[in-house]
Amino acid sequence: MTSITLRKLCKTYEGSKHPAVENFDLEIEPGELVAFLGPSGCGKTTTLKMIAGLHSVTRGDVLFNGVRVNDIKPERREVVMVYQNYLLFPYMNVAENVGFGLRMRKTPKDETDRRVAEILKLVQLEGYGHRSSAQLSGGQKQRVALARALVIRPKILLLDEPLANLDAHLRDEMRDLILDIHKKFEVTTVFVTHDQEEAVLLADRIALIFDGKLVQYSHSKDFYEKPASERISRFFGNGNIIEGTKAGTTVTTGSGAFQVRPGLPAADGPVQLVIRPESIRLSREESNSFKALILKKIYMGTYTRYCFEADGHIWDTTTESNEIPGYEAGDSAWFTLPQDKIWLIER
């Protein structure tokens, strides 16, 4: 198994003033499944291509197992990239496409045939070898592309937006397939997505990228509970952010003073208080409670969402539907921000 290290990795495309990728420092453990997450155009594909050796590095290093590979050609890296649009070679049938990498490695024909058949079975395309790629659906093309990459048993698998072009029901299937494959082949895998839910569902760790910069690299839970900035918090669907001032374990805001747990990394002074909608409780407790006006009640099936307002600030909360206390829009109610669920961002 192979680890990947990116050291101060930079890429500025020729003729472009702004770097597409700026000073990436990143360590991916052997066999890990990591997601590159970020809005379109933030540099995800560019980073993948530098790991694959397909695009040159402007500055910085790419290391596999601690060995610098900047100057190693893509065909020698044993890193396979699977593109968003599958890129099946049009004049080759499915079996020829899948066997391409083996042919390039001069694998004997009978072994090639055997391994191609094996891998097609794994991606549930047994017997599709003679089809032309034009006869396949999007999901099938994706699986052929995956098989073509896996058949050569790469050290590193790079998947560029593997689920983006698929219908919703196929997406779940493909996600499971990727997880299965990752487990079975124990291959270090990086996949790119602009969808935070997808990243959370699949990845061990997420590298969040904004505007060519790596802004946070951690386990997915941390993005919800410990976002490093307001923008990250909002990217992960949380707008419960209120400005305040921290002094010890007390944060004073427009909606009152709240107790926070000791040991939060933010220093005393101006901060932003962040709390997940599902962490807010609809109850009156000893501390951190305040009364607010319910603006909206939205029934979402399993969950019910309340929007409420206190001192000009609008909060968002989600509660399990079978536990709601029966408030309606227009009611006043007590809300509590549990002390141990509050996170602070320094301003």
């Binding site: 397909l54 649009n85 070679f89 073509r148």
Partner: peptide, 15 residues
Amino acid sequence: YDPDFEEQARSLGAS
């Protein structure tokens, strides 16, 4: 012409 086809081939091991 999509130059990504060339990259795809390189990444699969073609010189």
